[in-house]
């Protein structure tokens, strides 16, 4: 199954997940007031060096920027029009740095560790009688299944084009929704069949419809 995690070991894999997330949080606050284009450019360079230090497979992951490029271009144009090209460049660079660093954390952190790291953040939910572990599990599952859903879209597009479909990709929204719901049913069954997550106390019956 596809996953964002990269097994290729590196020094970044060894850092505690909490430290990586905290670092990203700190950086995103610190970068906010930076108005120096050179400094921001340097940050992007630093980010790219970080990718390089993790190894070739990480550098290949930079390709995630390709589908984002039109979006960045659009933001840049809009911002140039409203606040000028310097602010526009700053904004786009800042976004690039943060997205790339966040992606790097996802690539080098095991789901287990990610879950333990973010569980304390949801501690206040205990007040509402919601188990923080369950929410943390849901969040990590979400990260985990992003590439799976991307693959589902890919398959649907192939099936669409194989029968002569034109570029009206939005029509895939409904089959994608159906497939996602089916997928989540399968995952729920698999979770339940291996004891669910340890905090589920009352058994719930799957809604999956076997043939």
């Amino acid at each position: 199954m596809i996953s964002l995690y990269m097994a290729h070991p590196s020094w970044l894999h060894k850092l505690p997940a909490g430290l990586k997330l905290l670092g990203l949080l700190l950086l995103s606050v610190l970068l906010y007031p930076v108005a120096n284009l050179g400094l921001m450019g340097l940050m992007l360079l630093f980010t790219l060096i970080l990718y390089a230090s993790v190894g070739k497979p990480a550098l290949r992951q930079l390709l995630i920027l390709k589908p984002l490029a039109p979006l960045f271009l659009l933001i840049f144009l809009m911002q140039t029009w409203t606040v000028g090209w310097v602010s526009a460049s700053l904004l786009v660079l800042r976004m690039l740095v943060l997205i790339l660093l966040a992606n790097l954390i996802t690539l080098t952190t095991r789901m287990d560790d990610m879950m333990s790291a973010i569980t304390p953040m949801f501690a206040p939910l205990k007040l509402f009688n919601i188990d923080p572990k369950r929410i943390a599990f849901a969040v990590t599952l979400l990260i985990r299944f992003v590439p799976v859903l991307m693959a589902v879209i890919q398959h649907l597009m192939e099936a669409w084009r194989a029968r002569g479909g034109k570029r009206q990709v939005w029509k895939l929204a409904i089959p994608l929704t159906i497939q996602s719901i089916r997928l989540s049913d399968h995952v729920a069954e698999a979770l339940a069949a291996r004891g669910g997550i340890s905090t589920i106390t009352n058994p719930r019956v799957s809604t999956h419809e076997p043939r």
Partner: peptide
């Protein structure tokens, strides 16, 4: 689940973790 183990048809539907 302590008593009965269940193997599904499609491994991709039951593998939850990346490693």
């Amino acid at each position: 689940s302590a008593e009965v183990g269940f193997i599904f048809q499609n491994p991709d539907h039951q593998i939850i973790f990346p490693t």
